[in-house]
Each structure stands twice: as C-alpha cells, then as structure tokens.
Amino acid sequence: MPQIKVGLIGGGGIASAHIRGYREHADKIGITAVADAVEQTAADRGAELGATPYSDYRRMLEAEGLDAVDICLPHHLHRDAIVAAAEAGKHILCEKPLCLTAEEAAAVRAAVTASGVTLMCAHNQLFLPAVAKAKELLDAGTIGTVYEVRTTDSFYNDFDPTTMGWRASSSTSGGGELIDTGYHPTYLMLHLAGGSPVEATAMLSTHRLKFMEGEDSAQVMVRFDNGVVGQLVTSWAYQPAASTERFSAVGELGALHSDGTSLSWQLRSGETRTVDLEPVDTFAAEIGHFADSLLTKTRPLHTEDEGIAVLGILLAAYEGARTKTIAPVLAK
C-alpha cells in the first residue's frame, strides 16, 4: 500500500493527467478508491487503478481509510466536495478553479481552517522549470523592483455544442474561458507578481465559440499591493502570434521572458542570458509535491490562500467587464 492513500473524486477528464502522476510516485502516494456519479466511470477507473469504486464520494469518505482526496469534478461541484472532505479530516488536492464565488470561498476557508487539513490547489503550470527559475530570479532581485508581469494562455479550441458539455453553461463553469483555461495565466501572474491583488478589470469577447454562454477570450489587467501591474491574455478562439511570450516580467534593472521552455533575461547593465530547461510532466510534479508536503508536514506551493486570491482576481475582472469599471478584489 502507498504511504498516502488517496480517494479520487471525479474519474473523467483531467483525472487521467493526475493518474499519471500517481503512477510516477507510487512509492509514496496512490489512489485506493474512486468516486464518480456515473457508475460505469467509477467501475472503469476502479478496475484500471485497482481501487474500490463508489458512485457517491460521501460514502467513500465514510467507508475508506483515506488520508487525502483528489477533486477532479466540474467547477460548480468543488465547494461541496472540499467541505465534505475537510469535515471528514482528509487532506485535499483540488483542480482549478478552487470554487466559484466569494461565498463559496468563505465556506472553503472555514472548513479547511476548522479541520486543520492541508488543501493544495492543483496549479500545475507552477511546476514548469521555466516558471520555477523565473521565480528564483525575481525573488533574488535579479531584475530589481518588478513593475509589470504579463502572462498568456491561448489556443484554438475545437469545442462544439456536442462536446463542450457543462463548460457551455455559466451556471456550471462559473463564467466562460477566463475562469477555466484563464485560471492558469492568472495564478501564474499572481505567483510572479509576488503581491496581493487589489483591483482588476477585463475586456471579454466571444470571437468564435458563439454557442457558449460565457466568453471565449479575455484580456485582463490587475494591480497588486506591491505596485506590480499585471496583464494577461487568454482564449479558446485563436493561437497567439508566434512572437508572443508565455510570460514576462519587467523591473527596474531589466526584464525576463519565456516561451514556457527557455528563459531569457536582459539587464540594463548589458548582461544577457538564456537557459534552455528540460520539459517535465507538470501534473506528475504536482502530485509529487502534494505527497511531499503531506509527508514532511510542510506548506504546499499554493493553498486555499492563493486559490482564493486567484478567484478574487477573476471575480473582480468579471465585475469590471460588466460595469466597465476597475473593480476591487473582494475575495482574498
């Protein structure tokens, strides 16, 4: 048996990427039970993993001697699963977004605080080597005081009305592309900016996927309490131009930028460097980090604190777009 026994809540979609991570770290963490409302999905995943299947995760929490859960559910179901797991005393890994409203965020924080369990937000892109190296340079003051951070996550998505499922409805997704794929460049911006978000606004568009209730593209601006201004672009409608950086930061002493694989920085002193970094399976790295955090009783890279801060940015961006104003970040 693995050192850490995990119950998988939600066996479809993104669960496959998580399962790769558990297989890579099978010496310390593993899935011993799986719950999915679709009984066949639960049975199939159970057979695949050698895990006990359940059609109700609450029954799984009661019946199994689990240490933790991994929540891979549609967005609108995250809050209830987190609260149930916390009340059962289980540590939690939760896919993005953490939840959908400020009220849900308050319930999540209260449940996790009361139980004393560890909650880790599944922000896999933070485990890109280029991101880790950039964060190291920023924290070391290599480009001095940071003025601006930009992030991009756009691609041509081939969703159609028959394949989009729950993501087509704002009531189950929480909005549109911004709170889905757009969550990635938002937590990346937060990570690199190094401050707490104060205010945000957005321009939302539906360029191509017009059967969606929400937007398929967004441009967002965010101000942080340390003076950093963030800009992000995210879309399911199009591939970005070839010269578009995955992320960049500009500071008093110079700048850095990355395509997600290599990282370059240029200083006003004339120093210029580029490093090429070996790719990793970010989901496997994420699962390993979760396991290590539990085994060593150390804080994960992103907890409910960062998950709520990211949600706060997105809610303020949506409010700014709706009212054509710059909106305060309320969920922190």
Rank of each mutant, 00 (worst) to 15 (best):
319 E>W: 14
282 T>M: 14
128 L>R: 11
27 D>W: 11
113 T>H: 12
157 N>F: 04
31 I>G: 06
193 A>H: 04
20 R>I: 08
283 F>R: 00
252 E>Q: 13
18 H>L: 14
254 G>D: 15
85 A>C: 15
246 R>N: 02
314 L>K: 00
272 T>S: 14
96 K>W: 09
242 A>V: 13
102 A>D: 08
275 V>W: 07
280 V>L: 14
247 F>C: 03
146 V>T: 15
304 E>M: 02
192 L>Q: 08
86 A>W: 15
304 E>A: 10
68 A>E: 03
247 F>E: 01
140 A>G: 13
201 T>L: 13
304 E>K: 00
69 V>A: 03
160 D>S: 09
318 Y>V: 00
252 E>P: 00
88 A>K: 03
8 L>A: 10
70 D>A: 14
131 V>S: 05
66 L>I: 10
171 S>G: 06
178 L>Y: 06
243 S>Y: 14
273 R>N: 12
325 T>K: 12
5 K>P: 05
35 A>P: 04
18 H>D: 01
265 W>N: 07
16 S>P: 00
7 G>T: 08
94 C>W: 05
24 E>H: 11
66 L>N: 02
128 L>V: 00
187 Y>I: 00
304 E>F: 06
197 P>K: 03
225 D>M: 02
312 G>R: 00
163 T>Y: 11
225 D>H: 05
211 F>K: 05
132 A>V: 07
37 A>G: 10
33 A>L: 05
216 D>R: 05
312 G>E: 01
45 R>A: 10
295 L>D: 11
41 T>D: 09
292 D>Y: 09
177 E>F: 02
187 Y>M: 09
44 D>Y: 14
95 E>A: 12
59 R>S: 15
219 Q>I: 13
118 T>H: 12
1 M>K: 14
123 H>V: 04
273 R>C: 07
314 L>C: 04
74 P>D: 06
30 G>T: 07
300 P>R: 09
95 E>N: 11
12 G>P: 11
78 H>A: 02
59 R>C: 08
41 T>H: 10
48 E>K: 01
213 E>M: 12
233 V>L: 15
190 L>F: 09
3 Q>L: 15
35 A>H: 06
36 D>L: 07
192 L>H: 08
119 L>K: 08
286 E>K: 12
119 L>P: 05
176 G>K: 10
97 P>C: 11
13 G>L: 06
42 A>Q: 03
303 T>E: 02
105 A>Y: 04
78 H>M: 04
21 G>E: 08
67 D>C: 04
209 L>P: 01
282 T>I: 15
147 Y>T: 01
231 Q>V: 13
239 Q>A: 11
284 A>D: 11
95 E>Y: 10
85 A>Y: 12
60 M>C: 07
168 A>N: 14
97 P>R: 09
302 H>G: 00
43 A>T: 10
271 E>C: 05
100 L>D: 13
40 Q>A: 15
174 G>Q: 14
49 L>W: 08
54 Y>K: 07
197 P>Q: 01
245 E>G: 07
290 F>N: 04
10 G>H: 07
293 S>L: 10
253 L>Q: 14
311 L>P: 08
174 G>E: 15
203 M>E: 13
249 A>C: 04
316 A>F: 03
260 G>S: 06
152 T>S: 15
218 A>Q: 08
255 A>Y: 08
25 H>P: 03
146 V>D: 12
309 A>Q: 12
176 G>W: 03
302 H>Q: 09
168 A>E: 13
107 A>D: 12
243 S>R: 14
219 Q>N: 13
